[in-house]
Simulated assay, not measured.
Amino acid sequence: MRTLVVTNDFPPRQGGIQTFVAALLERRPPGSLVVLASRSPGWEAYDAALPYPVVRRPTSMLLPTRATARDAVSLVREHGCDTAFFGAAAPLGLLAPALRAAGVRRLVGATHGHETGWVALPGSRQLMHRIAGGLDLLTYISEYTHTRLAPALADRVAMAQLSPGVDVDAFTPDADGAAVRRRHGLGEGPVVVCVSRLVARKGQDVLVEAWPRVLARHPGARLLLVGGGPLEAALRKTIADRGLGGSVVLTGPVAAPELPAHYAAGDVFAMPCRTRRGGLDVEGLGMVFLEAAACGLPVVAGTSGGAPEAVQDGVTGHVVEPRSPEAVATAITALLDDPAKARAMGAAGRAWVEQRWSWTTIAATFAALLEG
């Protein structure tokens, strides 16, 4: 069996879908893959190190155009592909009929989080209907996204869960955060860490608003916000206006290989994600909660979308009202007040990720779904 992977979301461009697709492919036999993707800075060096062929269309955004369809069909015929996988079904799944006509027997498309917004709007819902009707299987990442997608699509295509996984060898309690602590002057006190893009849905603004309440009980604590994004300037202004510059650190963007050390620099992970725009801007799952748990950290999560599925509430962490700085601060201070309980939650999280969320488990599921 050889699989054509058609994806706009592929490294070296960073992002959750890119990481998801690359990790799935890393665990497939190299001779079973060929990839059609868009270009992003550094793609030549990245592709040269891969054990399977990658064809890049001369565009930064891969869309289901006639030119993309021609290239995809050509690859199917050249490499004898009998299966196809769309890294994000919308909109590239529109290519499915052309690939089936070229001889592909099984077509699988993945959904993530944004498709829940697509099915909520009449125009894009019709597009999702077309995409689903051309596929043999549509995957979803969480029960939350399934409940949003299934009413519109389950009568058109089979559906199955395919969640992202965690590299439990990279994200581990043995990761060393000492260098990160030194680099950012975090000292020896407790550190609350948040790893995510700086966008409104992720809730870093609520963390900053809650932070004075945490400092009132733990004056030596530090808040480490890892990542970049459009909210950065506003966050820096708020931090300066409230005199929190000595206890809140923004790292800016961090390369993926450095993320385990940044998690390890923390004692508690917190990201109070919230749903916005009438449900159109929602957390599909929240892999950062699982990566943090794999590193042995207790987590504090918001209620958005599938995020509660990435936490065993009261066991591996807490799920809180994400729009309430008081609730967020209470959950964080409770963990800082009782380090032994926090460590026990972190250990429980690590065990749960190893059992349910490791890439070994997810890769086996992916192989079964491809094979039908």
Rank of each mutant, 00 (worst) to 15 (best):
T7A: 01
R13A: 14
V21D: 04
A22I: 10
L24N: 13
V34C: 12
L36Y: 07
S38F: 10
G42P: 14
A45G: 14
D47A: 15
A48S: 13
V54G: 06
V76H: 12
L92S: 09
A96S: 12
T116P: 15
G123W: 11
S124L: 14
R125F: 05
L138I: 07
I141Q: 13
R148G: 02
L149M: 03
A154W: 07
R156L: 15
Q161Y: 04
Q161A: 10
S163A: 15
G165T: 12
A170G: 03
P173W: 08
H184K: 01
G185L: 06
G189E: 05
P190G: 01
V191G: 01
V191T: 08
V193K: 01
C194K: 01
V195I: 15
A200Q: 13
V206M: 00
E209G: 01
A221S: 05
G227A: 12
G229D: 11
P230G: 11
R236P: 00
R236S: 04
G243S: 00
L244G: 02
L244H: 02
S247D: 06
S247I: 00
P257Y: 12
H262T: 13
A265K: 03
G266N: 07
R276L: 15
R276D: 06
L285G: 10
M287Q: 15
A292P: 12
E309C: 09
V311Y: 10
V315K: 05
H318N: 05
V319H: 01
V319L: 09
V320A: 07
E326A: 05
V328S: 14
A334R: 13
L335Q: 07
R343M: 14
M345R: 11
G346K: 06
V353Q: 01
R356Y: 05
S358I: 06
A363Q: 10
